[in-house]
């Protein structure tokens, strides 16, 4: 069973938001909402400043609190790649999953259901990369099967320093940031 994840190279990323725009058009994300976004973290004092730019989105956690808290099973782990998805037809819009996500990855679609990154499963099923990965002009994003030791993401994680977001929250996120 595949377990999809991403390795995002913060060394190459320039924070241009192309991933965000591509997601919006690919998935017709309504105006005023984002499934992915850019976080810029500045540390240090000028001029010895340090910058980390990250393209962030749902972490498709191995232990997703949004799935375990969902009262209807609308939030679920998909068979393909263990991607965390929402079935809009089962969602009652209780917003529990929104509260349960430490990453703020979920929002309520204007049509009333919880929405978030799908890893572009509709593209992946066709053998394409997620829109954000496919568009990235800096080629900083890598997508693949974390359980396959020969995948792009696995080899990068084996060879590069990396971190995940909020590891202590215990959700076992699957978006890795290469530094």
């Amino acid at each position: 069973m595949a377990r999809f994840g991403m390795a995002i190279d913060t060394v190459r990323c320039v924070g241009c938001m192309d991933c965000v725009v591509a997601c919006k058009t690919e998935n017709s994300v309504p105006e005023g909402f984002n499934r992915d976004w850019i976080t810029t973290e500045v540390t240090g004092t000028f001029p010895t400043t340090h910058l980390e730019i990250r393209s962030e989105r749902c972490n498709h956690c191995d232990d997703p609190p949004c799935v375990s808290c969902c009262p209807t099973g609308a939030s679920h782990v998909h068979d393909l790649g263990a991607v965390v998805l929402v079935d809009a037809d089962k969602c009652i819009g209780c917003k529990g999953c929104v509260a349960s996500c430490p990453y703020g990855a979920r929002f309520i679609h204007p049509d009333g259901y919880a929405d978030k990154c799908t890893f572009c499963i509709h593209r992946v099923e066709q053998g394409l990369l997620p829109a954000c990965v496919a568009v990235c002009p800096t080629h900083c994003m890598h997508f693949g099967d974390l359980d396959d030791p020969n995948s792009d993401v696995s080899t990068l994680l084996a060879s590069r320093r990396h971190h995940v977001l909020l590891p202590d929250a215990g959700t076992k996120p699957r978006i890795y940031y290469l530094t």
Partner: peptide
């Protein structure tokens, strides 16, 4: 000193979670 900028602006979430009234 840390500056954090997040471009996300989802209603009911940003800048602070306010899903429940």
């Amino acid at each position: 000193m840390q500056e954090l900028t997040i471009t996300r602006h989802n209603a009911l979430i940003d800048p602070l979670l306010s899903i429940w009234s």
